[in-house]
Design a protein around this nucleic acid. Structure first.
Length: 574
DNA sequence: GTAGGGTTAG
């Protein structure tokens, strides 16, 4: 009876002091000797993050069972005290206690969080030794551990040999692929359904993320229907993920519809929507939403301000951006970090205020990183300031001598000025240092299928038609004044060859295919590119949107470009 | 006493 009343009392505990009181009473009335009571007390301490109290109690326990040990291992793991987590687990093995399916996931999670693949593999051996390979909890955590330690092949191998997999294990695997190969995530989602599973909200968040990564609009619509069709309500996390998905698929209006439909919103949801407006070049909408957020009593955080400053910079709202930068710490208590400074350098740089941008960098009291300098270098490129570019490049290459992007950006700047000697110098340096330029490629979704193009690509079965379409489009554009801007070809080759290379850029091939495969003029042509869209292709898209009367939506590595009637939403400012 | 979920800078 005393035991039961002690347990009942425990469940009414609201804070650590109440637990200590129950603990003291249990010691006095002897119920502490009951393992169930002692374990419960231990668990409550851990839940309230009172690890010292837990450890003291653990130490004074007359007997312990596997539950006792697993609560301790779990407590250390959750608190991030990895050394004590490992030490306690070693103690379990040393005392010849069989580790169970409760303890192992905790210690595996510790390996995952600290990316300790060596220890992770050792624990995997322990799992095999004790015959726990069939346990869902253990295996799901192992799969997650391998993936987070960047050995996705081992994660997949283990996943594939699991005889029975539950929804959580599938979710873990789909979530892991969202970071590496979002396309494979969606393949797994198809397989999951084929095997008769019905996804829950958590599983759908990982699928939604994969669609966002891919920018796969048709899949996004399907996923939305699946969520509604299976009666999954939009909680704050799933809703926010869907805002991000629609926005990254180029449908900022659909993103807003989801946002408006959400009953519960928090600072993350608001920030996601502000960010979405930002990379779609809708700076004014981002600002309006920020003010609406404030009037709803939500306090902005670091990320809200990054999104807001980004929105200002990409919409040319220089004064507004500077105003927010000035007030974020003073009025909202959010201290600017390097990301905020990067946005402001970009903001000033785009406005041609390079001296001010440089001065800001020189006087800031925050550690500088390569992205900050890259922002300034990008501005040097746009405004053709080679002298400053040289200086910036020095700082940048000191920080990141192995980043191919920097070499490419520098080559771009020198190529623009026709300094082919310098371009060659950097190309040689890249070869010497074994750095490879990331190849550019564009993909387009037609009838639920994704087609991918690289420069000069002829691998598509309709390649002949695509090239014919491209030639005919270019002819039409030339008639209204299109002149290929060969400054965007870095190689020092003949003008005619440069033209040839420009004409077969992956963006142009994908658009030519889009014109064939999406004949309905009302449907926009949506393409995605892994790098930033080149200046000539940008002009090409503007003119196609006018001459061919087609709306084109391009997702590049940084933002979206909406081309309509000869103009782009970025205002030629990207 | 157990495993899976959202936003951000070049």
């Amino acid at each position: 009876m005393a035991t039961e009343s002690c347990l009942r009392l425990l469940y009414t505990c609201r804070n650590i002091f109440h637990i200590r009181q129950v603990h003291a009473n249990a010691l006095i009335n002897g119920t502490f000797n009951n393992l169930i009571v002692a374990n419960k007390l231990l668990h409550f301490y851990v839940q309230h993050k009172a690890i010292n109290d837990a450890y003291y109690l653990f130490d004074e326990m007359p007997t312990r069972d596997p539950t006792t040990w697993s609560i301790m291992v779990g407590g250390f793991s959750k608190l991030g005290d990895y050394n004590n987590c490992y030490a306690t687990f070693r103690e379990i093995l040393r005392c010849n206690i069989t580790p169970d399916n409760y303890t192992l996931p905790f210690v595996i999670r510790a390996c995952r969080d600290r990316k300790d693949i060596q220890m992770g593999r050792m624990i995997h051996d322990v799992v095999l030794k004790y015959g726990l390979v069939l346990d869902h909890f253990v295996c799901a955590t192992l799969v997650d551990m391998y993936a987070k330690c960047a050995v996705i092949e081992d994660a997949r191998k283990l996943f594939d040999v699991m005889v029975s997999k539950d929804l959580v294990t599938w979710t873990v695997m789909i979530g892991c692929y969202a970071d590496y190969d979002a396309y494979e995530s969606l393949v797994l989602f198809d397989r999951l359904r084929e095997e008769g599973f019905v996804s829950d909200k958590v599983a759908m968040v990982t699928v939604v993320n994969a669609c966002a990564k891919l920018g796969a609009m048709h899949r996004a619509r399907f996923v939305n229907e699946y969520i509604c069709g299976n009666g999954l309500s939009l909680d704050v996390i799933l809703g926010t993920a869907m805002i991000d998905m629609y926005a990254k698929c180029g449908c900022v209006d659909s993103a807003r519809e989801v946002f408006d439909r959400m009953k519960e919103k928090n600072v993350i949801s608001w920030s996601a929507m502000i960010a979405a407006y930002g990379y779609h070049g809708k700076g004014k909408e981002a600002l309006d939403l920020f003010h609406m957020m404030l009037s709803c009593g939500i306090s902005p955080n670091r990320i809200t301000f990054v999104s807001l400053l980004y929105a200002c910079s990409h919409s040319g709202l220089t004064d507004e951006g500077l105003h927010f930068f000035d007030s974020m710490w003073r009025d909202y208590g959010v201290r600017p970090d390097v990301k905020h400074y990067t946005c402001v350098v970009d903001l000033l740089g785009r406005a041609g205020r390079l001296d001010e941008a440089l001065k800001l960098i020189e006087t800031m009291n925050v550690e500088k990183d390569e992205r900050l300098w890259s922002a300034l270098l990008g501005a040097c490129r746009v405004h053709g300031n080679m002298e400053l570019a040289g200086k910036v490049a020095e700082s940048l290459l000191e920080l990141q001598p192995k980043n191919p992007g920097i070499y490419v950006l520098l080559s771009n700047i020198y190529a623009k000025a026709g300094k082919w000697e310098k371009v060659g110098e950097f190309r040689d340096l890249m070869t010497q240092r074994k750095l490879k330029k990331v190849p550019g490629w564009t993909w387009i979704e037609v009838d639920n299928k994704t087609y991918q193009f690289s420069v000069g690509d002829r691998s598509h079965p309709q390649s002949k038609e695509i090239y014919e379409m491209l030639t005919s489009v270019i002819k039409k554009l030339e008639m209204v004044g299109y002149v290929p801007d060969t400054e965007f070809v870095l190689q020092d080759v003949e003008e005619e060859v440069k033209k040839e290379m420009l004409y077969t850029h992956s963006e142009k091939l994908a658009i030519a295919f889009g014109l064939i495969a999406i004949p309905n003029k009302g449907d926009p042509i949506r393409i995605s590119k892994n790098l930033r869209v080149c200046g000539d292709c940008h002009t090409f898209c503007k003119m196609v949107s006018d001459v061919m009367k087609r709306s084109i939506i391009v997702r590049d590595a940084n933002r979206f470009h909406h081309f309509n009637e000869g103009a782009c939403s970025c205002g030629d400012y990207w």
